[in-house]
């Protein structure tokens, strides 16, 4: 007796369950959201509480260009996956490469901002409370962009090797959820750090 089959009806054909990839990714996104929430709360709670300068107003400029780049990469990754689903691997590769480039531009921009702050302004994570919350929140987000970029680069390599097939569109679709999440988080970080915090 190794199975518990019943004879009453066989509705096996109608049996459909949600996709594992999507459910798993949404759970992960929920966990990541909780992590970011704590960092955002800490940042907001500490606005204006630093006991010494410099203040956000002295240091930060709105990173408009890199923000536009990152947000548009959400569109390009969407178009890439759509192309792959329609079996247009070449078009996919093009959009995918654009996504990677836009993400990389964002990271470089963050890097330059940090370089400016650290080497020219002498402002580090231990300078004051603002430095602590600023570098850790922006850094946590940049870390997530980096992880996403590594994954995108990996898929890019496979694309160049000709290994990416239309049947992989489901997986890349699941990955794109992560990328959209990273973008949404940036909207929040941008608002909190560069708009409200300033």
């Amino acid at each position: 007796m190794s199975s518990a089959t019943l004879a009453r009806s066989s509705n096996e054909s109608a049996w459909a369950l949600p996709s594992r990839g999507r459910v798993g990714m949404f759970s992960l996104i929920a966990a990541e959201s909780a992590v970011f929430t704590i960092f955002v709360v800490a940042h907001i709670y500490y606005i204006g509480k630093s006991l010494s300068g410099p203040t956000p107003k002295d240091l930060l400029e709105l990173p408009i260009f890199s923000t536009v780049c990152l947000l548009s990469s959400s569109l390009t990754i969407h178009l890439a996956v759509r192309a792959l689903r329609k079996a247009k691997v070449g078009v996919f590769g093009l959009w995918w490469f654009l996504t990677m480039a836009l993400g990389a531009i964002f990271l470089v921009a963050t890097g330059r901002e940090w370089q400016h702050l650290i080497y020219e302004k002498g402002f580090t994570i231990s300078t004051n409370l603002f430095g602590t919350t600023y570098y850790s929140l922006v850094g946590l987000h940049a870390f997530h962009v980096t992880v996403g970029l590594l994954a995108i680069a990996l898929a890019m390599i496979f694309t160049l090797l000709g290994k990416v097939k239309p049947e992989h569109s489901e997986r890349l679709d699941v990955f794109s959820l992560y990328w959209h999440f990273v973008d949404v988080v940036w909207v929040i970080v941008f608002t909190v750090v560069y708009v409200i915090g300033r």
Binding site: A42, Y46, K49, S50, L51, S52, I125, S126, N128, L129, G131, T132, T133, S136
Partner: peptide, 10 residues
């Protein structure tokens, strides 16, 4: 960092 450092406003 100064998250929980009361000397620095944490």
């Amino acid at each position: 960092g100064h998250f929980f450092d009361t000397q620095a406003g944490g």
